[in-house]
């Protein structure tokens, strides 16, 4: 069976990994190479690295940085931000990325999706779609880091990029970004049901159980989040334990497993019962 994928999204701003809140506020996390190495060891299925200021500052992707971080990254790495021409794709893949993500350029020039997937294969081309709820209360695709409404409905745009040759859709709710309110399930579901390519859900995860909703109710093929994975040890493995407990087929590839642990409503590990701890203490000291 094909596993449901857990994909940490690492947000890069001014060459630092940051937490993003509503596409507006940013909290620094640290150096990209170290962040990638950490999550790569923590049982994640893929890594999504997005440089959020490259396009705005008219910069090319930071190849030196991609080169460095890909060195010890033995899970698939998708890189987005600042990709506007075929040469950029070539360079980013050469630097060690496995897939690339485009957002602005796809909106600017939809044919670019066809051109790039014609050369690199659609499996290599992820189209990133940012969505906000507009003044009429409807979902609408936004551009320029959430600042400009495009008039496109997410369903219409998703179907179009699929037809043009996109291999996957990275669907991000700009409203929920950093909000900890949980996924925009309505949005995820409408897009997942509209296309036959995999949809990666992102935006709003506040507690581990949100991941389960994204898969079961949202029908996403993969779930992504950014902020929740920072500041917590083994956060990605704990997320997997949650998914596993909900009978979702995920890949478990580490000896650190949390299957027998109990969690509180925020996904924090609960202290074991004293009787259990006494038993462990007894077993340990027996020999």
């Amino acid at each position: 069976m094909l596993k449901k994928r857990l994909i940490p999204c690492l947000v890069l701003k001014d060459n630092l990994i940051v937490q993003s809140i509503g596409f507006k506020k940013y909290l620094p996390i640290g150096v990209a190479k170290i962040a990638v190495e950490f999550v790569a060891k923590w049982d994640v299925d893929e890594i999504f690295l997005i440089d959020i200021t490259a396009t705005k500052e008219k910069r090319k992707p930071n190849l030196k940085l991609i080169n460095k971080i890909s060195e010890n990254c033995f899970v698939p790495l998708t890189v987005g931000g600042g990709i506007h021409e075929l040469k950029d794709i070539k360079n980013v893949i050469r630097a060690g990325a496995d897939k690339i993500s485009i957002n602005s350029e796809a909106l600017e020039d939809p044919d670019f999706i066809t051109k790039s997937s014609g050369i690199y294969g659609s499996q290599c081309i992820v189209v990133s779609v940012d969505v906000k709820i507009n003044s009429k209360g409807n979902h609408e695709v936004v551009a320029d880091a959430g600042k400009r409404f495009t008039g496109l409905s997410p369903i219409e745009w998703a179907r179009r990029v699929e037809k043009l040759g996109a291999g996957e859709i990275f669907l991000n709710s700009a409203d929920r970004d950093g909000s900890k309110k949980g996924y925009d399930i309505k949005l995820i579901k409408m897009v997942s049901e509209a296309v036959r390519i995999p949809v990666i859900a992102c935006g709003g995860v506040g507690v581990m159980s949100d991941f389960i909703e994204g898969i079961i109710e949202g029908k996403a093929s993969a779930i992504s989040a950014a902020n929740i994975f920072h500041y917590t040890e083994h956060s990605t493995i704990i997320a997997k334990a949650f998914l596993k407990k909900a009978d979702i087929d995920v890949r478990l590839n580490t000896l650190a497993k949390y299957g027998e642990f109990k969690f509180d409503e925020y996904g924090r590990i609960l202290k074991k019962e004293d009787a259990g701890l006494a038993q462990i203490w007894f077993e340990r000291n027996k020999s």
Binding site: L2, K3, D45, Q123, R196, I197
Partner: peptide
């Protein structure tokens, strides 16, 4: 309802 590409861990 199966999706293509076949992408992920199998």
């Amino acid at each position: 309802n199966t999706r293509l590409p076949h992408v992920g861990w199998n």
